[in-house]
């Protein structure tokens, strides 16, 4: 197991470089530059800008500089947000997105898993159908609809909660975005849990356990839950990685200073250092979370080995 983890950690570096390279090529292929605007720039001014940012240099020089920056973990200054380094932006926005994402996922996990397990245990009962129908409703309500509806209800009609903006890590401002964000995930998790549990509840070893006369609770929690949660665990890796690195729609609707909105804007503005920085960070996050998921596999299901 240890060697497996070490192997996977070592591979992170070439992987990140690969992702960053692909991204860099994509940025070059995309039309437009960070300086293109509503009004066409005189050629001389465009030339000045290109010289200032080294865009007049041959591609391998630019590529080498970018790779060097990535290896050093210092991505330079943002092109759109002048005078702010990419690392500064990452450090500032990450806690916001992470707080939001973790809180949302945690609540989604708790509610989703319990609802899913309950539904699976009481398959085809009203409880099952009701919770699953609710889950589907949660999925089919886009968060850009749910968010504003909640705002309309709780902020603009009842005046209970602030409609938007960041108010610190522990503030009422977080309630609506976290709820909005978690509903879809909650629903996903509930459905995946139910499916996984149903699969497992029919497995031989569960029947064996039941046949042995173990109490149902123990069968469910000690035996079935492990295998039954496998799909949820698979799903958690990428889901959590994406949640932590920002959720654009929520951040925009609730005007939160998170990473997701920066990332979208960086893409739209062709802000190369910022895109590269965020992509590098995101790929590390994804790799690590997927590694954690793989470790969790082995823990949950002893038959899985690496």
């Amino acid at each position: 197991m240890l060697s497996f983890i070490i192997r996977r950690m070592i591979i992170v570096v070439p992987m990140v470089l690969l992702v960053v390279t692909i991204t860099w090529v994509l940025i070059r292929l995309a039309p437009g530059n960070f300086y293109t605007g509503e009004r066409r720039l005189p050629a001389a001014i465009e030339k000045n800008i290109r010289e200032k940012y080294g865009l007049d240099k041959p591609w391998y020089v630019q590529y080498g500089k970018m790779m060097g920056n990535t290896l050093r973990g210092d991505f330079g200054d943002s092109l759109q947000y002048r005078g702010q380094s990419v690392n500064q932006i990452l450090l500032r926005t990450l806690p916001v997105s992470a707080t939001l994402g973790l809180l949302a996922y945690l609540s989604a996990l708790i509610v989703g898993v319990s609802a899913g397990m309950l539904a699976a245990m009481k398959q085809n009962t009203t409880l099952d159908h009701a919770s699953m129908a609710l889950a589907i409703l949660g999925i089919s309500l886009p968060n850009f609809v749910l968010g504003p509806v909640l705002v309309l209800l709780f902020s603009l009609t009842l005046y209970w909660l602030p409609p938007a903006r960041w108010g610190g890590f522990l503030s009422w401002n977080l309630v609506l975005p976290v709820v909005t964000l978690s509903v879809a995930y909650m629903a996903y998790i509930a459905r995946l849990t139910r499916a996984g549990m149903l699969e497992v509840l029919r497995a031989d070893y569960i029947r064996t356990a039941r046949a042995k006369g173990l109490p149902e609770r123990q069968v469910i929690f000690r035996h079935a839950s492990r295998g039954g949660l496998l799909p949820v665990v698979s799903y958690t890796g990428p889901a959590l990685a994406f949640l932590i690195t920002g959720t654009v729609v929520i951040e925009r609707i609730f005007a939160l200073p998170g990473l997701g909105n920066y990332f979208i804007n960086a893409n739209l503005n062709r802000d190369e250092p910022l895109i590269i920085g965020i992509v590098a960070f995101m790929s590390i996050t994804i790799l690590i979370f997927n590694l954690l998921v793989d470790i969790a596999y082995a823990y949950i299901d002893p038959r899985i080995r690496y």
Binding site: M15, T23, L29, A30, I275, N290
Partner: peptide, 23 residues
């Protein structure tokens, strides 16, 4: 195979769409 999936996850999807549509 799974590392390929990871790379695909990490590539900025929007950039891909921008480039695809531009091409």
């Amino acid at each position: 195979m799974m590392r390929i999936v990871d790379v695909l996850y990490a590539i900025p999807y929007m950039m891909v769409v921008i480039v695809l549509l531009a091409m």
